[in-house]
Design a protein around this nucleic acid. Structure first.
Lengths: 186, 186
DNA sequence: CTCAAATTAGAGTGAAGACTCAAATACTGA
DNA sequence: TCAGTATTTGAGTCTTCACTCTAATTTGAG
């Protein structure tokens, strides 16, 4: 992979793999299908990847990262921004969202590394949401903020899950309702 | 399947299939694996089922039904009861919960019947939750109750999803928090 | 008890899967 | 330009899958 032809081919293979995982799941993601979609022959595939698994894991890792595009950014996000970012991810990158949810359920089996990665990622997101909640509701205890953050993030994943099932599901509206409900104080 | 030996064998096959789907996903659910786990040979399997798919679909339909064990019961459920029932399902029948969530994501592809079934089932659940909310909060508009019910059910599925990832996740606590938050009026 | 039907045994089939390899071709640094 | 490496080709291997088939065994109604 030193010539640009190789890099381009690699990109096409990754793209084809991502599309197939999103559209047909791991079941339909065969070497044959990947190669056809990428316009490549098996030999080329194996010149660039050690195994099918390697290509799949690359796609999955990208999907996990895409959920939260800027994890290092420590700035003071508003809660609404965080929620909107997730809504945008779920609706605009629905392929990756599908991969993310799918892998969270089934793909983590046999891949403890992925499971750990998803869980750690989730914890990071909860922390960020908790920070935003605390900032906007200084009167709330840290414990309470953390609990609400965890509930909120988990529930948002539920919304994403449902959207995978029903493409017409109104993600934005429900996400905002959720936010309002969870932060309405008695 | 007229002799009791056949019925027992059928039960063992279904049980084995359910366990395999939950533990290894559809990927690891092969005829060989099912037969080994059930203590049966392929010939017996195909004497009782037309195809592997038939056995899998049987398990999946059971899982969907188990989410809401008594859908006809029109009595005045309390919201807390409904939530508790789901918590109980998720924690005590985690195998079926895994199957349900897994199928919601990937298994519905290529099986429009299943997708429709899951969505209809979801709508039924939302209606039931909405009824309970309205009963407990007569001052709330029907629209508002419906919206909150949809958010609640979807968020509960998110909790179930997370529990599939992390067996230590405290489903009961989060489900109750969610209920409180969503029904706290400004 | 008996016999037809149900069930089980277990080797075998064809298709499809992931992956390999040696030869041909394309690319690029020197 | 050209030598050497990267890339592509495409037929081929080996494994596993779902599923079949025939013969043997078990069941239970009459």
């Amino acid at each position: 992979m030193r010539y640009k032809a190789g890099l381009q081919t690699r990109d096409r293979i990754i793209e084809a793999t991502r599309g197939l995982i999103a559209e047909t799941g791991l079941e339909g993601t065969t070497i044959k299908a990947i190669c056809e979609r990428a316009g490549v022959l098996p030999g080329s595939f194996y010149n660039l990847f050690d195994s099918k698994e390697q290509a799949v894991l690359t796609v999955v890792r990208d999907a996990i990262d895409a959920v939260d595009p800027d994890p290092r950014h420590q700035g003071p996000d508003s809660l609404a921004d965080l929620v909107d970012a997730y809504v945008q991810f779920v609706t605009e990158q629905s392929e990756l969202a599908r991969v993310y949810i799918g892998i969270a359920v089934s793909g983590s089996r046999g891949h403890p590394e992925l499971r750990g990665r998803v869980i750690r990622h989730h914890e990071g997101r909860v922390a960020r949401f908790a920070g935003a909640i605390s900032a906007e509701h200084p009167e709330m205890s840290a414990d309470d903020a953390g609990r609400r953050a965890e509930t909120l993030v988990t529930a948002l994943n539920g919304i994403a899950l449902h959207r995978v099932l029903d493409p017409d599901f109104d993600v934005a509206t429900h996400a905002r309702s959720l936010l309002t409900d969870i932060l309405t104080l008695a």
